[in-house]
Design a protein around this nucleic acid. Structure first.
Lengths: 200, 200
DNA sequence: GGGGAGAGTGGGCATGCGCCCACCATAGTG
DNA sequence: CACTATGGTGGGCGCATGCCCACTCTCCCC
């Protein structure tokens, strides 16, 4: 084994390894040894670049949450185009078809990690909080455009969509849900508030 | 320490100890040693009454799921009385104000346990599956009574309610959600389908 | 009341975890 | 071409977990 040769961007390399493990084997398999083995380096590397394993996990979660920003902006821009149900369906599919469920599971299952993250995002489960905000923002925009009723409880709608989507994805870890399942949820939840007329 | 004196109903005693730990310290704290210590007996007891720790957990989950039956019957009987939203709110509060969230968390976090349970309840996460069936059954009854629209997607509604309720309860493990939060979810989800006229 | 079956006790094993640290290869500097 | 700083390597420690098992105590039946 060669030693001393510096890895390129070891942090990102470890993050990628962790994400692969998360998707392949789930949160329980994500140990420090598994990460370094998957990354193809010695177990000491992780501890040179992060103060401890929970700090590594927290940074991983925060890094992946950062990727939500692009999706959030895209959804916000979609307000007023297509149908509300289709936009919501797409966002749910993107969100829960990815590593999101594993990330949430990871945060829920590790007390120390949750405690650590609470300093950064004090309320609720990180990623779910951000995802809820993403939908709230979008639905508010649609309400302003008059495409959903003015008295719609936008916050509860967002929470409900996230909850249903997460359950759909977490319930069957082996068979990821199809778009159709998300679409049924979207249309069902939005049935009471949609009034598909353009901005008036 | 006295030895040899038989415990009365050791299985139930261990189940109760486990439930106490689950409620007080969460799924991660539920180790075999923690259970026997909480029950006030030696660690060997658990292994005399169960083939291994996962078998114990599986029996615990199945035992607690059994308690849903009474609630399920009560909800079913409530069809046609009060408002649909109030009935749903009550059922959600009962379900997720109890040990249910911890049980679901436990099942999600232990691969071996989930695998073992899959023989008994092959689809989805036990307890969530049963809870969904409970709501489906109730909503179908209400639909037959004409209190929700005939074309309502009862199955998706049930799934959505469970998902939103679970997220509400799991999102803030420290502060259990108030009834009002469940009520907002119920009214929001049901807004599109309720037609509060008695059977006609 | 002696004896055996059943049941609780707790020492201790193997395993896997996070982590520390002594060691050493490489790259950049003069 | 030596010298040092940077950073990868892997042995191994301490701890917790699930589990096994030799030991011991109690109860009950004859």
């Amino acid at each position: 084994m060669p030693t001393g040769v510096a890895l390129r961007d070891p942090r990102e390399q470890l993050f990628d390894a962790a994400e692969r493990i998360l998707l392949r084997d789930g949160p329980n398999a994500l140990t420090s040894r598994a990460v370094t083995t998957e990354a193809g380096c010695a177990k000491g590397v992780l501890h040179r670049h992060f103060t401890n394993f929970d700090a590594f996990l927290a940074d991983l979660v925060l890094d992946r949450i950062g990727r939500l920003d692009a999706q959030s902006a895209a959804l916000r821009d979609a307000a007023g185009t297509g149908t509300v149900a289709d936009n919501v369906t797409g966002a749910l599919s993107d969100l829960f078809g990815s590593v999101a469920v594993a990330i949430v599971g990871l945060v829920i299952s590790r007390d120390a990690l949750r405690t650590r993250l609470r300093r950064t995002t004090p309320t609720g489960i990180p990623l779910l909080t951000e995802a809820t905000a993403m939908f709230t923002s979008y639905l508010t925009a649609e309400r302003d455009l008059g495409r959903i009723t003015p008295d719609a409880d936008v916050d509860t709608l967002a929470r409900t969509l996230i909850g249903a989507g997460h359950l759909l994805a977490a319930g069957r870890p082996d068979t990821p849900p199809e778009t159709e399942a998300f679409h049924r949820v979207a249309t069902t939840v939005l049935a009471g508030v949609t009034q598909e007329r353009p901005a008036g």
